[in-house]
Computed example of a mutant assay.
Amino acid sequence: MSLYRLPPLPTIKEIIRLYNLRAQKQLSQNFLLDMKLTDKIVRKAGNLKGAYVCEVGPGPGGITRAILNSGVEELLVVEKDTRFIPGLKMLNEASFGKTRIVHGDILTYRLDRSFPKHLKKEWEDDPPNVHIIGNLPFNVSTPLIIKWFEAISERTGPFYYGRTQMTLTFQQEVAERLKASVGNKQRSRLSIMAQYLCDVELCFTIPGRAFVPKPEVDVGVVHFTPLKKPKIEQPFKLVEKVVQNVFQYRRKYCHHGLSMLFPEDQRKELTNKILKLANVEPTLRSTELTIKHFRDLCFVYRELCDNDPQLLAYNFREELRKKKLQTNPDVIEEEKNFTGTM
C-alpha cells in the first residue's frame, strides 16, 4: 500500500451510528467493517498508486477508505442509496477532493464517460490504469457482471479505456461458478460467459460473519482481467443464447438443450447436424463441455443462422408461451390485465 493515509476519521461503526444507517434487506445490503479485509480486497486489485478507480456501491465507505489509502489519483463512487452520501462526502473532504460521488444506478451509469480520455489504451496493450472494485449486493451481482461481459465483448462502457480490470465480491456459490472448470458440479452459464472473455481468479473467501448483518452464505472475491482475444469469436448474444440453451437441462445430455435452439419441425435434423459439425458427443453433459466445444457449437450455429436468418430469432420459450395463449383464453385475459397495471 502507498504511504498516503487518510487523516483520523470516525470508524465505520461510528459512521453507521452517526447517520443511523441500517442495511436494507430488500437491497441485499451487507456492510463489511473489518478494515483488514477491505485492505485485502483492494490489494487483490493490484498496484493502485496513481490509478483511476470506480467503486460500485460503497455504502458506509469501508472499501472506499482502503482504496483512498492505496494512493489513487481519483476515486469515483456510484451509490444508489442516498443515506450513504453524507458519509461519503466526509471521505471526499478527508481525501482533499479525490473522491467523486455519483448518486445513481451502476446498471445504467455511463462509465465510458467517467475518466480522462488519455487513459485509453489499445485492447492488445497492457490493461489501462482504470479499475472497478466493489462489494456487490447479491441481487445485482449477476445481472451486472453479465452486462459487463457484454461490454467487454463490445469494448464499451468501462472497457472503452481498454482491458479494465475488475475486483468484485459475489455470493460464494456464484464466485465458484464463475471460476468452475470442466466437470465441476458448479460449472454453469456464468462459467462459460466469464471464461471465454476473461482470465478469472477466485482470490479468497470472506466468512459471512465478517458482514453486518451476517448473510446466510460466505462471500467470494473474484478478480477479472479481460483477455486480449476472446476464446469464442462470435457476437455476445449468439454465444449467450447457445450457452443458455445447453445449460437449461444441466442434468441431461447436452443434445437436449441444444435441440431447443431449433423449431420443432427442424429440431431433430439440425440438432444432429450441429453436433456432428462441431464434433461434440451428444451424450456429454453440459458441465463436461469445454470452451472449445462451445466455440465450435457457436461457429456452426452461426453458419446455420447465416443460411436461415429466422433461426437466430427463434425462441422456444416464446413459442411455448404463444401456444399456451392460443389454447387458454383465460391466460390471454390475465396477461392483458397484468399489462394494464404496469
Results as ranks from 00 to 15, higher is better:
Val42Lys: 05
Leu75Gly: 00
Gln24Asp: 12
Lys40Gln: 14
Lys25Arg: 15
Val77Leu: 09
Cys54His: 05
Ala51Glu: 02
Lys98Tyr: 04
Arg65Cys: 04
Cys54Tyr: 02
Asp105Glu: 13
Phe31Pro: 01
Lys89Trp: 14
Tyr109Arg: 08
Lys40Phe: 04
Pro127Met: 05
Ile41Ala: 08
Val42Gly: 09
Asn47Arg: 12
Thr142Arg: 01
Ser28Leu: 14
Asp125Cys: 09
Pro7Ile: 06
Gly87Tyr: 09
Met90Thr: 12
Val130Gly: 04
Pro58Arg: 02
Gly61Arg: 11
Pro60Ser: 12
Gln26Phe: 14
Ile132Leu: 15
Lys89Asp: 10
Ile106Trp: 04
Val53Gln: 05
Cys54Thr: 14
Thr64Cys: 12
Val102Arg: 12
Glu55Gly: 03
Phe96Glu: 14
Arg100Glu: 05
Arg43Ala: 15
Leu32Cys: 09
Arg43Ser: 14
Leu27Ser: 08
Ala51Gln: 05
Lys25Val: 09
Cys54Arg: 05
Ile12Tyr: 14
Ile133Ser: 06
Lys49Tyr: 10
Leu18Ala: 10
Pro128Asp: 09
Leu32Arg: 01
Met35Ile: 09
Leu9Glu: 10
Val56Ser: 02
Lys13Phe: 08
Leu37Ile: 14
Arg110Trp: 11
Ser70Thr: 11
Pro10His: 07
Asn69Phe: 00
Leu68Asn: 03
Asp112Val: 06
Thr99Arg: 02
Glu124Trp: 12
Leu37Val: 13
Lys44Met: 13
Met90Arg: 10
Glu55His: 05
Gly87Pro: 04
Gly59Met: 07
Gln29Pro: 01
Leu76His: 07
Lys40Ile: 07
Glu124Cys: 05
Met35Tyr: 07
Pro137Arg: 07
Leu136Trp: 06
Asn20Lys: 14
Asp105Arg: 09
Ile85Trp: 00
Pro8Ala: 06
Leu27Val: 08
Val130Phe: 05
Ala94Thr: 13
Ile12Pro: 11
Gly87Arg: 05
Arg113Pro: 02
Gly71Asp: 03
Val42Asn: 08
Phe115Asp: 01
His131Tyr: 15
Phe96Thr: 08
Leu88Trp: 11
Asn92Thr: 13
Leu76Arg: 02
Arg43Leu: 13
Leu119Met: 02
Ile16Pro: 03
Val77Glu: 04
Gly57Trp: 00
Gln24Ile: 12
Glu79Cys: 03
